[in-house]
């Protein structure tokens, strides 16, 4: 294989995953949290495709495509929830959306 080995792709994927996790933890706007979640899903996809290439087995790519579909469904439902919450004239801030907490 030309270029860097699989380990370089995996380190890239881990750093991207950590960036996404950091975003989920630090941001208050649910929209940005959804964007950071997409970063984490993409990091997982990168690792799947890197391992798929390393093993020469296409199953990892199938898994990555399925993850993509789940990410699309998750974005639809997450954005639908955010729009529904904003219709209630509630401020979009995950620190203040505490009605459901015990």
């Amino acid at each position: 294989m030309l270029g860097p080995g699989i380990a370089a792709y995996l380190i890239l994927s881990v750093v991207l995953f950590a960036t996404g996790a950091f975003g989920v933890l630090i941001r208050r706007s649910p929209l940005i949290i959804l964007l950071a979640l997409e970063l984490m899903l993409n990091a997982g996809n990168l690792a799947l495709i890197a391992f798929s290439r390393q093993l020469g087995n296409g199953d990892g790519q199938i898994f990555a495509l399925t993850v993509m579909v789940v990410a699309a469904a998750e974005a639809v439902l997450g954005l639908g929830l955010i729009v529904a919450v904003s219709r209630k004239r509630v401020e979009l801030d995950v620190d203040k959306l505490t009605t459901l907490s015990g």
Partner: peptide
């Protein structure tokens, strides 16, 4: 990583659909 189809699907599904949806919701809110 020789994943041509996944790369194409990535651009179409994510950049073409998911990000556009995000931008629409951002414009709405």
């Amino acid at each position: 990583l020789s994943g041509e189809f996944v790369a194409g699907a990535q651009v179409i599904v994510y950049a073409g659909a998911i990000v556009i949806m995000f931008v629409f919701v951002l414009a709405y809110l």
